[in-house]
Design a protein around this nucleic acid. Structure first.
Length: 901
DNA sequence: GTGTTCACG
DNA sequence: ACGTACGTGAACACG
């Protein structure tokens, strides 16, 4: 055994046992299995470790010829001879087998041929080629994880066995084999004949293990030798076993013998090693998300270009020009297409400072910290000219930021953030550097790497550092433009991007800029009222508890309720007692304190989240809140809203609903106007499933929950639908949309799982195409790895084939829900784009302010209300053409509270 | 930073 | 035998 490979001056032939090394590689990084997945959910640990091993071996060997042999399948000439050969083996883990095709791609990238041959094992391919190589006077190096291959060692052939860590390798020469096993290489075969092999599942001679075998072979050399000299062995149990198991020993030796005469279609002449195919390797690393390897490649390329190495610097300086008031004419060189960044260090672009600006066409890059330059005629001529295409990262932020500076950004073509999100909704990191790296462009760092994080975050004082980062970011956008547009086209998502998401981003920008006026006096009055009520409740609760404690602390509350007052524990959380509403409601009848706690909770929520929370984010300048819609966050295509979240303002309880009175028009004599889609998700369900019964209910404009109740409770047209029936039918309808489970429905309705199951079965019988859809969409997701909405919005579901029941079930429910929720999101997005245009075309002052998933909120002069009542629903219900009509309901009033039907 | 709770669709 | 309804954001407590 040796850690070092002894190299001769001969030419080198490298032969790798693909399956065996892949297996070792897989288990070397098995503990990291979850960390090694690419953006499509493919595990990559074995590929990664295999790659590491390859680098190691190639560096050590410098092969002239190389080949990786794979097993062709389960059946071989050995199984034909002995059907139990390798029987009883637990099958290869799915997480490994899914990597095998990609391993071959890796090898292609490395310029190494891979080969398998029907009915033969990789061992035999290697054995055959090794002998061919020896005949041509090559030094042969065989890499495997399987010690049996040491039988192939000769003075011309070294066998390298990978250890636990794949890059640790033991090299076996005949001398080392002798040293380690006390046998010659060919005697390894005889040993296997005598001992058998449990992992390959062949028997050998009973009770003969390694020690006995070595002793026998030292004396008699071969299996045949042992049997020829049976007489020399004195009477013993062992001798009986040898006689008894003669046939097995012969057969086992045969099975263990690696063939050197396999009928190969590949020969030495076909397997020259001339080094990697860089283009293939780069695209492969991108596919695998091997960013560090990409970086290595890129740096290797750089240092070659430079001729010398600059090891401490990972990225070289970008050549760029500092823009000043005196060289603004340089901007006129940009006539066709530019990548542009207005750098805003704070997340909230409505308030952020401006740190700098960069613009590039890939050839010339201009940078500056002087924000005022943006307001010059020269810069405006570039930015406001819609004939010059703009490539950006987060178009909405750029548009809003520039708008604050009085610049109207036009001609936006490529938004790296938005496109990345459409390609894979999981790519929502929001950082240009990390997104670019995920897409294989690594000559850019993350903002965190350059600016720091937390308290230490700050802009670099050094112009070189700052300008370089800006320049690299702009160049990243410029460079990814073509590739990502191609990917969009491949996914049939170009229309989704150009006709929906990109136009929408500007609609949203206008809505955010418009903002919503908040009546802070009203909120302050509510705050005082709530403050008193909370104080009173607090005192009552302290009295009932017999002590003072923090009611907001679930931990302290749990101690009071379940230890001090000894109330029954209904539900537990990971960390202790659950004190959630449904638990407290079950306890309410037993002690008055619970009712008060519930009241306190409700009030405290309104106070802290809505009253105080809202007051904190009202802009003092205009008394408005300017939310930010996150367009690249949700997995379904919905928007989300932050700072503040205007999509979860209370409505359900009267007390909470009062908050909406504070959302008022921004002009005297105006009103709030609101329209919402009625049952849009169930209508989408009816459309997508094509279910005739569901569609009929919508065509007849029935109360859908009542109609469902009639069906699942088998009522005739004369029977009355009781409120309970309707409630249960409604819950079932929702359950279907969410990807139903009997357990979930039973929890929601407070019924037994059996009963819930019955509801679902009846539902599926009444709406058979809905059932078919739920099955088909899961099958499709299993096949493709993703599901789609009506506009080809895509969501990948890597867990759809997971081993864990939970993960798999969750993915299956997601597969059912996402096309429904996502298509509903598509519809309202289209409506919003059409709406903005319709308002403009009609010359109305009305402004769209908010989107709450199925609802649009406007403010408008009172006199425009009749016009809106006609226009808004017509635009909304004609956004897309479905198999059934869409229905829209509208209302208006002096505040959002009053805009209710 | 994580977990719990609760607001919305 | 498992232990879930789908999608979000904000506040608070706690370590």
């Amino acid at each position: 055994m040796s850690e070092q490979l002894e190299l001769s001056p001969k030419k080198k032939l490298l032969l790798i046992d693909g399956n065996s090394v892949a297996f070792r590689a897989f288990f070397a990084l098995h503990s990291q299995l979850d960390r090694f997945t690419n953006h499509d959910g493919l595990h990559t640990n074995a590929i990664y470790a295999f790659k590491t091993m390859l680098d190691h071996v190639i560096k050590a060997v410098h092969p002239d010829k190389a080949l990786v042999a794979f097993d062709a399948g389960k059946t071989t000439f050995r199984t034909a001879k002995y059907s139990d050969y390798k029987g009883g083996r637990s099958k290869t883990p799915e997480e490994l087998s899914e990597q095998m095709p990609y391993l071959r791609e890796l090898l292609t990238g490395y310029g190494i041929k891979s080969y398998d041959l029907k009915d033969w094992e990789a061992d035999d391919i290697i054995g055959t080629l090794a002998r061919e190589g020896e005949a041509e006077d090559y030094q042969v190096i065989i890499v495997t994880g399987d010690r049996d291959l040491t039988q192939l060692t000769t003075d011309k052939t070294t066998v390298a066995i990978t250890q636990k860590g794949v890059s640790e390798i033991e090299y076996y020469t005949p001398a080392h084999v002798q040293e380690k096993f006390g046998l010659t290489p060919t005697q390894i075969i005889d040993m296997k004949g005598l001992t058998g092999d449990t992992s390959d599942n062949y028997p050998g001679v009973t009770k003969v293990g390694e020690k006995t075998a070595i002793k026998l072979l030292t004396q008699f050399e071969t299996v045949e030798g042992v049997y020829e000299h049976l007489d020399d062995i004195k009477q013993s149990k062992m001798k009986d076993h040898l006689i008894e198991d003669h046939d097995q020993a012969v057969m086992s030796k045969d099975l263990a013998t690696i063939r050197t005469n396999a009928p190969l279609a590949v020969h030495l002449a076909d397997i020259d090693y001339t080094g990697p195919d860089l283009d293939k390797l780069i695209s492969f690393y991108k596919q695998m998300d091997f960013n560090n390897f990409l970086k290595q490649l890129q740096n290797a390329g750089l240092s070659l270009d430079l001729g010398d190495e600059t090891p401490e610097q990972t990225l070289k300086d970008i050549s760029c020009t500092e823009l000043t008031a005196h060289n603004l004419d340089l901007l006129a060189n940009f006539t066709d297409e530019v990548s542009f960044i207005l750098e805003m260090p704070d997340e909230n672009y409505h308030l952020s400072t401006f740190a700098g600006v960069v613009v590039t066409d890939g050839k010339q890059t201009l940078v500056s910290r002087e924000i005022d330059l943006l307001q010059t005629a020269e810069f405006k001529a570039l930015l406001e000219n819609d004939q010059i295409k703009k490539n950006v990262f987060n178009a909405k932020a750029q548009y809003v930021g520039l708008n604050r500076l009085g610049v109207k950004l036009a001609g936006i073509d490529f938004d790296l953030l938005l496109v990345s999100y459409l390609l894979d909704t999981n790519d929502n990191s929001n950082d240009l550097g990390s997104l670019a790296q995920q897409h294989g462009y690594v000559e850019v760092e993350t903002d965190e790497a350059v600016y720091g994080k937390g308290a230490k975050r700050g802009l670099p004082d050094d112009d070189t550092v700052f300008f370089n980062h800006l320049a690299r970011k702009a160049l990243a956008i410029q460079n990814l433009h073509d590739d990502l547009f191609k990917e969009l086209a491949t996914n049939e998502q170009t229309d989704l991007y150009r006709n929906i998401e990109l136009p929408l981003t500007l609609v949203l920008a206008d809505m955010e800029i418009a903002g919503v006026r908040v009546d802070t006096d009203q909120l302050i009055a509510m705050r005082e009222k709530f403050k008193e009520q909370l104080a009173t409740l607090q005192q009552t609760i302290y009295q009932e508890a017999g002590e003072e404690f923090n009611i907001n602390s679930t931990k302290q509350l749990g101690v009071i309720l379940f230890e001090k007052m000894k109330l029954p524990v209904i539900k537990k959380t990971k960390t202790g007692y659950s004190t959630s509403v449904d638990v407290l409601e079950q306890l309410a009848s037993q002690v008055p304190i619970v009712e008060n706690i519930l009241a306190y909770r409700g009030l405290a929520k309104l106070q802290s989240t809505y009253i105080e929370g809202l007051l904190k984010v009202v802009h003092s300048r205009d008394q408005k809140v300017h939310t930010r819609y996150l367009q690249t966050l949700t997995q379904t295509g919905r928007l989300s809203s932050v700072d503040p979240n205007l999509q979860n303002i209370p409505i359900q309880t009267q007390q909470g609903r009062e908050i909406r009175k504070a959302f008022v028009p921004s002009h005297e004599g105006w009103q709030i106007f609101s329209s919402d889609y009625s049952q849009v998700e169930l209508r989408v369900l009816a459309h997508i499933t094509g279910d005739a019964n569901l569609q009929e209910a919508f065509r007849e404009d029935e109360d859908i929950h009542a109609a469902t109740a009639r069906r699942i409770f088998g009522l005739t047209s004369n029977d009355e639908v009781t409120p309970l029936m309707r409630r249960q039918a409604k819950a079932t309808n929702f359950g279907i949309v969410y990807g139903i489970s009997d357990y979930g429905l039973s929890q929601n309705l407070g019924i037994s799982r059996q009963e819930a199951k019955q509801f679902i079965e009846t539902y599926f019988r009444e709406y058979p195409d809905v059932k078919k859809y739920t099955e088909d969409v899961v099958t499709q997701a299993q096949k493709d790895g993703y599901v789609e909405t009506i506009t080809h919005r895509r969501r990948y579901l890597p867990d759809i084939n997971a081993k864990s029941f939970n993960q798999r079930s969750f993915a299956a429910r997601t597969a059912m829900n996402t096309p429904i929720q996502g298509s509903a999101a598509d519809i309202i997005k289209i409506a919003m784009i059409n709406m903005q245009k319709a308002l403009k075309d009609a010359g109305l002052k009305a402004t769209m302010l908010l989107q709450i998933h199925d609802e649009l909120v406007f403010e408008a002069p009172l006199e425009e209300i009749p016009k809106l009542e006609q226009l808004v629903p017509s635009v909304m219900d004609s956004a897309v053409k479905l198999a059934i009509p869409l229905k829209v309901e509208s209302a208006h009033g002096d505040s959002w509270y009053d805009a209710k039907g």
